[in-house]
Amino acid sequence: MPPSTTPDLPDAETQIGWYQRMRLLRRFEQNAVELVDEGDIIGIVHEYVGEEAIAVGACAALTEHDVITSTHRGHGHILAKGGDPARMYAELLGRETGYNKGRGGSMHIADLDLGIFGANGIVGAGAPMGLGAAHMFKLRGEPHVAVPFFGDGAMNQGVLLESFNLAVIMELPVIFVCENNGYAITTPIGEMTRGELFERAAAFGLAAEAVDGMDVRAVYRAAAAAVARARAGGGPSFLECRAYRYSLHNVAKGVPREDDRPAAEQADWRGRDAIERLAGELTEEGLWPDGARAEIDDEVDAEIEGAIGFARNSRRPDPDSVLDHMYAVTYPGLPAAGWE
């Protein structure tokens, strides 16, 4: 069932803002990889490069009251929902000023005040939490929605399929956003899944469609229609956004980076780059003046530089705080230390 109406695109200023956000997502990730290589980030980082149009397009249809749940590849969702790159880098660098005070790292960054329930290290696991949030909105009579993001690999995870059913029977204001980048780590989707993903979702009773995930305008239009329907009590939807990650599944210092995916395939997707596409459209349609792009790119780089500086200058958590935040309410001996 396709959306009944196709929302108009917002004004030029807003679309220029999308360009800026997408550029911010990309530069954030490219710099994060450098920080991994330089040893500033300990552990692994899953780059979102190539998929920027999905997070930016979908979150453009949301307000700060709406909730998103994210994935192991979560930086893009958080930035698109309004996350602060400085506090994000601080988290990646394990600093006390990070979103999670250095307790979560790349795979768990969250900003509950912005409705960001957090990245998640377990595939598909965030989706049911979005449903719980959506139910509380409904119970309180609030017009907000929840958007679980997940990848094509999650389409074979039981809890996600359970969540499709639950959202449908409870008529929850939820928009499931499937980022189909074609691979679960290195396994092509076709080897693990038969049929179209959006058709599988439709079989659960979700209003489901597939859109070009390399086109921020297409993602926005589909998301805005689904969000409007959900806010009006029209129930849950499913958007399959087809895109490509330019990078490997993840990066860690010292781990070889050999990409076995076909070169022609990679070149083809890179040729459809979402950022270049929107920039071209804005130019072609005369929606931004000459030189605007270079100016924005400089602004983004300056913001990134400032954010990294903030993170590097922040202190690491005190070892004495190791037991903090396990519980809201502690008791004598709880949590137990491991040495007394």
Partner: peptide, 28 residues
């Protein structure tokens, strides 16, 4: 029925549902 909710046989989903409700001001 909005507060006392019968669930399908989907223990992972309704357990996660409760986590999300708790993060959203509920006491499930």
């Amino acid at each position: 029925a909005d507060r006392v909710i019968d669930m399908p046989i989907s223990e992972p989903a309704f357990t996660g549902f409760a986590t999300g409700a708790a993060l959203s001001g509920g006491r499930p």
